[in-house]
């Protein structure tokens, strides 16, 4: 990549960190309040709770926005750190390759799970499922 192009991309990444960071503060605080500050806290998190939430398209879109912004923000942060501290070209290539590979995996896997999750999988015991599954 030539220098002008690289500088343009870095400038774009700089803006992205500020914009995504601003929204992530609200997204993650909401995520924590809804999941960890609920009655019972972390102990109340199980399949029934999460699948029940994700049956609502509002939470699907909320979580997918959170996923993409958080993963891309984290990836760019780690890229900056590798750029700052890793001088050996070969090692840098390996680390950045691993980083971008993980990014792609997390985005694809996370998005698929959020949009293809069946809250009432057939054959599962009713007491493990959201309460709306047993209403027939």
């Amino acid at each position: 990549m030539n220098l002008t192009k690289r500088l343009k991309l870095d400038r774009l990444a700089w803006v992205f960190m500020r914009v995504s960071g601003f929204f992530l503060v609200f997204l993650i605080f909401t995520h924590l309040i809804v999941n960890v500050m609920q009655d019972g806290g972390v102990h109340a998190i199980d399949f029934a709770f999460v699948a029940g939430k994700l049956a609502d398209p509002m939470w699907q879109w909320f979580d997918v926005t959170l996923l993409w912004l958080a993963v891309l923000h984290g990836t760019n942060g780690m890229r900056t750190i590798v750029d700052d501290y890793v001088y050996r070209a070969k090692l840098k290539k390996v680390l950045l390759g691993g980083l971008y590979g993980s990014t792609a995996l997390l985005l694809v896997l996370g998005t698929l799970v959020l949009f293809t999750l069946d809250p009432c999988p057939a054959g599962s015991p009713a007491d493990l499922l959201p309460s709306f599954c047993s209403v027939s």
Binding site: F47, V113, L117, P121, S124, L128, L129
Partner: peptide
């Protein structure tokens, strides 16, 4: 979280 997709 992806293990949601495997089974409850």
């Amino acid at each position: 979280t992806a293990t949601l997709r495997i089974s409850p």
